[in-house]
Design a protein around this nucleic acid. Sequence first.
RNA 1: GCGGCUGUGGUCUAGAGGUCAGGACAUUGGCCUUCCAAGCCAAUUGCCCGGGUUCAAAUCCCGGCAGCCGCACCA
Length: 552
Amino acid sequence: MEDVIELARRRGFLWPSYEIYGGASGFYDYGPLGAALKNRVEDLWRRFFVIGEGYMEISSPAIGVEEVFRASGHVSHFVDPIVTCEKCGEGFRADHLLKEKGVDTDGMTYEELDEELSKRKVRCPACGGGLSRINTFNLMFKTGIGAAGRTGYLRPETAQNIFILFNRLYEFYRKKLPFGVAQLGRAYRNEISPRQGLLRLREFSQAEAEVFVDPGSKDRHPRFPEVSHVKLRLLPGDGEPRELTAAEMVEKGIVAHQYLAYHMVRTYQFLREAGIPVERIRFRQHRKTEMAHYACDCWDAEVLTERYGWVEVVGIADRTDYDLRSHIRESGVDLKAFLRFDTPKREKRVILEPDMKRLGPVYKDKAKEVGELIRASDPGKVKGDGSIDIVVEGERLNIEKGMFSKKTVEERVEGEKIIPHVIEPSFGIDRIIYCILESARTTEERNGEERTVLRLKPAIAPYDVAVFSLVSKEGLDEKAFEVFEMLREKGFLALYDTSGTIGRRYARADEIGVPYAVTVDFQTLEDDTVTIRDRDTMKQERVKIADLAERL
RNA sequence: GCGGCUGUGGUCUAGAGGUCAGGACAUUGGCCUUCCAAGCCAAUUGCCCGGGUUCAAAUCCCGGCAGCCGCACCA
């Protein structure tokens, strides 16, 4: 049986990159048909999430400045600690060497790992030589920006660009939660050892949406009723597989809330529309230990492939406020949303009001600070004699009664500032394309010959239609070319082919998934009709050329 | 990154130190052809890369790269 990757290579979907220089693993080129297919899949994604959900799309640089990934945790978490043997040059994972010695390395810093290695006199397992100190191997591609060499990294996920733009986006959406933002783009991970063709690339395409929600409303997705009856196959973290409706999975507490369940259903529908058989789709919950450092609940959409078994194609995570909180800490910029209460709260509070007229002469240039400290003090701290202690520049001061007064004020609180939580569906486009190709490809015996058909859904097929002439004579080729031109003008991506026999041309078109073939024959010359042949059924139907565009 | 196996036109393959590296399918052109890879004629295209051994290397040796399988890794 011919491999689908082989077909993809032969017919111009996918080629290993840099072949003439010996190749480079982890990189693939999309050939003409592959790029067309990828565009169609991305368009389908846009139809679902950009148009369907209103998650407007942005497009950001692939190179990020160092601070971004310090904040996100990728600089520190996205690394392997490597030690190399000073004698034979072999490299080892420091934590693995220690685990072999029975040391629990979880949560250890690299300094601690280093100490532990030298304390236990760990030597090279291969030759017994001495080991270097720990070098970190970060899975991000590092680069320098400009002549001064400010450190930059190729982004390992597209998501960070969206978090960073939070204030701009929040403003764009006129300061209302929830809102979603999408990005389709490339991401980069310097995998130590990429394998499995398209499934683990060093440069890959992601389609991600970041949905910012009020953490208090995660269980009320406005469109949840539309999806609540849809059943999904689940594999929860506790391992018990089951099939539940979206409503049930939330009610039973298996999926954390409606926002996650809603996006799981939409993901399921997207994969179905992309042509992946529904019986090969399941959702698997991450166990606590495999959860990314930022997530609190995460479900992967997995597709059963013939070649690789279950393959993760989409991750749907509740990233909580982790990312925004991290960027607030790193940048010092407030990335918060203002949640207005339904009715403003009125609060009566007792406060201490400094009497600046009397503080001034006594405390001179410190008076302003003293006044602020009094105002900030808890009224309960006022002593029996009516004085209060405050600390100014490390010095304890007793402020006498009369320098300030107790006052009751009524405050109107309109709302509060919160850090929104982020629900993130993240699609691996390349993996999805592999799954589409694999499940679309069918072979059957026909007159002793193997017939290969790529049963791509018409919405994602690289070509919309092929135009043929029955035979190359009496002007049929020319007539077919006219039909081809007409279809092109109407916006169809069409294929025109007159070489070989008609059967061969059908077969070639089937193999690359062209859904319909239009054939010009002798009857066309008489009454301006052509036949439309359906790829999957091979049935033909005769229609007027004038009606052709409509019928397709 | 470690270990095992592998690398011949676009694809599949023959080749086991010694003529111009052979075939099939595909592709292109021509002839033929009234609906599903028909036939005939012709043409294009190849030993993964780099070293070494030898009078002579697709073939033997070493290294690299790539692929497959297992281990590790996959936030």
